[in-house]
Amino acid sequence: MNHRTTLAAVLAVTAGLTLAGCSTSSDKPALKVVGGFMPQPVNDMAAGFLVVRNNGTGDDRLTSVTSPLSDDVTIHETKNDVMRKVTSFDVPAGGELDLERGGNHIMFMKLKKQPKQGQKVSVELHFEKAGAIEVDLPVKETTHNPKKQ
């Protein structure tokens, strides 16, 4: 191998390592959950609502939700008044994920018990980068909708 080939190889490796080091190592999400609640369920299903704020410099993604209230907890999006199960929601850097009535939400099926107004429901939000965050959702009256107050 001649000196030019060796120099080119060293520069290519160095440039690759430099780019790899600068990409996502400092791009970290900083998540905070606020405004969570669950309307008191009237049957064996319930919905959960909350806002995830990301004050960090990296994007994240909500990938699942678990709760002792149900073994069947999913996340749903609502578009054109049609609800469908999704595998994840993005939480952009410097932005938020808003799970609200009439929109995207957490869905609890086959409830193990009926939580009553004034109680709290424990949930664990699972994120791609930030890991798990535990949150207690206060149970509110069935018609509670803070966006319309």
Rank of each mutant, 00 (worst) to 15 (best):
K28D: 02
K28E: 12
P29H: 04
P29N: 04
P29D: 09
L31D: 05
L31W: 07
K32V: 13
V33W: 07
V33K: 08
V33A: 03
V34I: 12
V34R: 13
V34D: 09
V34Q: 09
G35E: 05
G36H: 04
F37T: 02
F37N: 09
F37R: 00
F37L: 02
M38W: 06
M38G: 01
P39I: 14
P39S: 08
P41L: 08
V42F: 11
V42P: 06
N43Q: 15
D44V: 12
D44K: 12
M45Y: 14
A46Y: 01
A46H: 07
A46E: 00
A46T: 01
A46S: 14
A47H: 15
A47D: 13
G48Y: 02
G48H: 03
G48N: 02
F49R: 03
F49W: 10
L50Y: 01
V51T: 15
V51N: 01
V51C: 05
V52G: 03
V52E: 05
R53C: 08
R53Q: 12
R53L: 14
N54F: 02
N55A: 13
N55M: 10
N55S: 12
G56Q: 09
G56Y: 05
G56I: 06
T57D: 15
T57S: 12
T57F: 00
T57K: 11
G58E: 08
G58C: 07
D59T: 09
D59Q: 11
D59K: 08
D59H: 13
D60A: 10
R61S: 13
L62Y: 10
L62S: 01
L62W: 07
T63G: 07
T63K: 13
T63R: 13
S64D: 08
S64M: 10
S64F: 01
S64W: 04
S64H: 10
S64E: 09
T66H: 06
T66W: 05
T66N: 11
T66M: 03
S67Q: 02
P68N: 05
P68A: 06
P68F: 07
L69T: 01
L69N: 06
S70G: 07
S70R: 03
D72T: 11
D72K: 13
V73S: 08
V73T: 10
V73Q: 01
V73K: 07
V73D: 06
T74K: 14
I75Y: 00
I75N: 00
H76E: 15
H76T: 07
H76V: 05
E77H: 11
E77L: 13
E77D: 14
E77N: 14
T78W: 00
N80E: 15
D81Q: 13
V82L: 02
V82A: 15
V82D: 12
V82H: 06
M83S: 15
K85G: 06
K85V: 09
V86G: 11
V86S: 06
V86M: 05
T87D: 15
T87R: 09
T87G: 12
T87Q: 14
S88Y: 07
S88G: 05
F89Q: 09
F89R: 07
F89L: 06
V91F: 03
P92G: 03
P92M: 00
A93D: 04
A93H: 04
A93F: 08
A93N: 03
G94K: 07
G95R: 03
G95L: 05
E96D: 12
E96I: 00
L97A: 01
D98L: 14
L99Y: 00
L99K: 03
E100W: 06
E100D: 08
R101S: 10
R101A: 09
R101V: 12
G103Y: 04
G103S: 13
